[in-house]
Design a protein around this nucleic acid. Sequence first.
DNA 1: TTGTTAACTACCCTATTTGGTACTACTTTT
DNA 2: AAAAGTAGTACCAAATAGGGTAGTTAACAA
Lengths: 109, 109
Amino acid sequence: MTGDRSDLPLVPDLNLINQSLAIVCGKWRLYIILLLGKQTLRYGKISEMLPGVSEKVLASELKTLVALGVMKRKAYAEIPPRVEYTLTKKGLLILPILKQIQEIGRIFN
Amino acid sequence: MTGDRSDLPLVPDLNLINQSLAIVCGKWRLYIILLLGKQTLRYGKISEMLPGVSEKVLASELKTLVALGVMKRKAYAEIPPRVEYTLTKKGLLILPILKQIQEIGRIFN
DNA sequence: TTGTTAACTACCCTATTTGGTACTACTTTT
DNA sequence: AAAAGTAGTACCAAATAGGGTAGTTAACAA
């Protein structure tokens, strides 16, 4: 869902909506965000809770979500490695909004 | 964003959220819905207002949105053809929810 | 007869997203 | 000396999304 569309007739606030969707759209985004909404989790645990994601995809999604500021990564200097992922304050604010997004689904049921 | 994930640990209401996103995610979906939110439009007019979409993609997006029940298609038996697209009642209900979705974008600004 | 017009479809191609899996690094355990 | 344990990365492949454009149709105008 990429590409430059900045020259389109301006529909007010379209950019904000697109930013929102850029955060939650993606096959696994929602799952990851919702899982972390309940607790801090280690990489391996997330992987376990989402049978079906490949390691490669999970790692890259986590990296993206951290870059977006949705979650933070805390690595402990241990062997074997231990890394914990937690929603940021901003990330936590997404949760109630997801409730609103549900409404669209409800309409079309 | 497809693929079977029905065997995942149940996060309540995940399915509804996914249904919602299935409606609004996509490079042009939002534009089309917002444009039709203001007025009924003919195919050619939508195409004109969205420089950048290919006919192929626009046609297929419209078809999908009609199938989803977001908008309806009215074809007149004329030559050359005339076809009008209008949001359904359900489709109209999406608009206020988009306002909520904006909030996520606002958080990450 | 030829050209126009509008809303597509058919066909093919590129780009982006997602998936699979072997490999790495470094300690502790066997 | 070999194996286990964790969080990845590298590299390649498959699937899905999106793009480009010629062709189709039927009536009417020139």
